[in-house]
Amino acid sequence: MTKTFKTLDDFLGTHFIYTYDNGWEYEWYAKNDHTVDYRIHGGMVAGRWVKDQEANIVMLTEGIYKVAWTEPTGTDVALDFLPNENKVNGTIFFPKWVQDHPEITVTFQNDHIDLMEASREKYATYPKLVVPEFAHITYTGDAGQNNEDVIAEAPYKGLPDDIRNGQYFDQNYHRINK
C-alpha cells in the first residue's frame, strides 16, 4: 500500500503489522474513531488477541497519530503512529501481575474479561513494567472501517507472513480461508 496519510480519516480503517526493536511483533487495526483490534505475535504475551478495545484516537498533526487505552488487565498502552515513515513509537505499561503471569492474558480477551479483572484485583499491580520501544511497520493495509474480518481469529505461527504475502485477505479485504 502506498497511501499517503494526511487526515484522521486516512488513518481510520488501516491495518498494520509492526515489529518493535526488541523483536516483539504486533498486528493492529484502527477499526474506527474509538475502537481498535489487535493480535500479538511475539513477546511476553504472544498469542493474545483483542477485539473492540475502546481507545482514544487523535491526529497530532498531519500524518501523525496518537492512540491510547487501558485494558481490562490494567495494562496501559500509548502508541504514536508515523505511517508515512513506517514508524511506531509505543509505550506499554504492564502491571506487575501481567509480568509475573503473562499466560493468563494469552487468550481471546473478549471471552475472559471477568478473568482479566479478577487477576488485576488478585495479584500485585506495582511496580509496573514500562516498555518504551520504537517499531518498524512491515505491513499497511486499507481494510476500511468496522471490518470484522481483519482480526477475527487467534494468532498462529506464520500469520503475519500470510498477510504480507497476500495469502490471507482477498481483494475486498475479507479473509480467504474462514
Rank of each mutant, 00 (worst) to 15 (best):
V58N: 09
M1S: 11
P72H: 10
H34K: 11
D37H: 09
D52C: 04
Q171H: 09
P160D: 13
K3T: 02
E117I: 14
A68M: 15
N86G: 01
G42K: 03
P102N: 00
G158L: 13
T138C: 06
G166L: 10
V150Y: 02
P72G: 04
G141D: 04
T125P: 01
N172C: 13
D33T: 10
H15Q: 12
V106M: 02
M44S: 04
A46F: 01
G13D: 04
I137A: 10
T73W: 06
R164V: 13
Y65S: 05
A30F: 12
A68P: 03
Q109E: 08
L129W: 09
Y29E: 09
I151H: 01
T73Q: 07
W49C: 02
D9C: 04
I176F: 00
I163Y: 02
A46R: 01
E121M: 05
W97H: 04
D100H: 14
N84S: 00
L82T: 03
M1A: 06
G90P: 08
I176L: 00
E25T: 08
E121H: 15
A154Q: 05
H34A: 13
R39E: 08
W69D: 12
T61A: 14
E27Q: 14
N22L: 09
D10K: 12
Y168S: 04
E153I: 08
Y123R: 05
G63C: 12
H41E: 08
G144R: 04
K6Y: 15
P132S: 15
I57Y: 04
K66I: 15
D114S: 09
T61M: 14
A78D: 09
Y126K: 15
D52E: 15
Y38T: 06
T73D: 02
I17G: 12
N89Q: 04
M116R: 07
Q99W: 07
G144S: 01
T138N: 11
F11C: 09
P160S: 05
N147E: 11
K87P: 07
A118H: 15
A55G: 08
D149H: 09
G47P: 01
A46D: 07
I104R: 00
I64F: 14
